[in-house]
């Protein structure tokens, strides 16, 4: 039995191998990409201010849209960037069509943006360290929050995608992230961290 070419690989190499195999018609490779990268698509969608139900639709729409686009991705490196860009566009579209009409709960999605809320999600954070880290993260600038979230979720090898999504030069992603992390540590250490 043939061994999957991405077996044993991780991060960018794994996604590149999967993409090439998927372009060749390997459905398991496509499923592996879905397993690995759906968390990225999910969190990018939620960062755009969609409620969980609408976010599920957007996640599916993005992956379905990829099917047609699969063979147009010439560089495996472009996949994460395509996913981030498409997810943002789809999320914005969903938000517009969902809220422009006479929806009785127009702000439902806006009220549970994880980056701006200290509401119910706090309950999910029982661990004190988690609570302090989340409180410190929430005090970072929005730019730092997005940059840290995207680099963590997209993988460190995929800075091109993150740079494009944040309209930053690729070379400044690493140094900027370093500064964001330092700010995060300062916030965490300040008098034992935020309460």
């Amino acid at each position: 039995m043939a061994v999957d070419t991405w077996e044993g690989l991780s991060g960018h190499d794994r996604h590149a191998a999967c993409l090439v195999a998927a372009q060749g018609g390997n459905r398991r490779a496509l499923d592996t990409l879905v397993t690995d990268l759906t968390p990225l698509v999910w969190h990018v969608t939620r960062s755009q201010g969609l409620d969980r139900v609408s976010a599920e639709d957007v996640v599916q729409t993005v992956w379905l849209a990829l099917l047609r686009h699969l063979n147009r991705l010439e560089h495996p490196r472009a996949l994460a960037g395509w996913l981030i860009t498409t997810t943002r566009r789809e999320a914005q579209r969903a938000r517009t069509t969902g809220y422009d009409r006479e929806s009785p709960v127009p702000n439902e999605g806006l009220s549970d943006i994880p980056t701006q809320n200290d509401g119910p999600e706090q309950e999910a954070l029982r661990d004190d360290r988690d609570r302090r880290l989340w409180a410190a993260y929430a005090q970072l600038t929005e730019r730092c929050q997005h940059l840290l979230k995207l680099t963590v979720l997209a993988g460190r090898a995929q800075y091109d995608a993150v740079a494009e999504a944040l309209h930053m030069p690729r070379g400044s992603i690493g140094p900027t992230r370093g500064r964001c992390l330092n700010q995060l540590r300062d916030l965490l250490n300040r008098e034992g961290g935020p309460q």
């Binding site: 759906t38 999910w42 996640v59 999600e121 999910a124 993260y137």
Partner: peptide
């Protein structure tokens, strides 16, 4: 730590990956 935290704060629906795989 942040990686783990993002999923704790806003976990994906448990069946989402499976649903996407079915859809495609």
């Amino acid at each position: 730590e942040l990686d783990v935290l993002f999923d704790k704060v806003d976990p994906m629906p448990a069946d989402l990956v499976e649903r996407v795989q079915f859809a495609i």
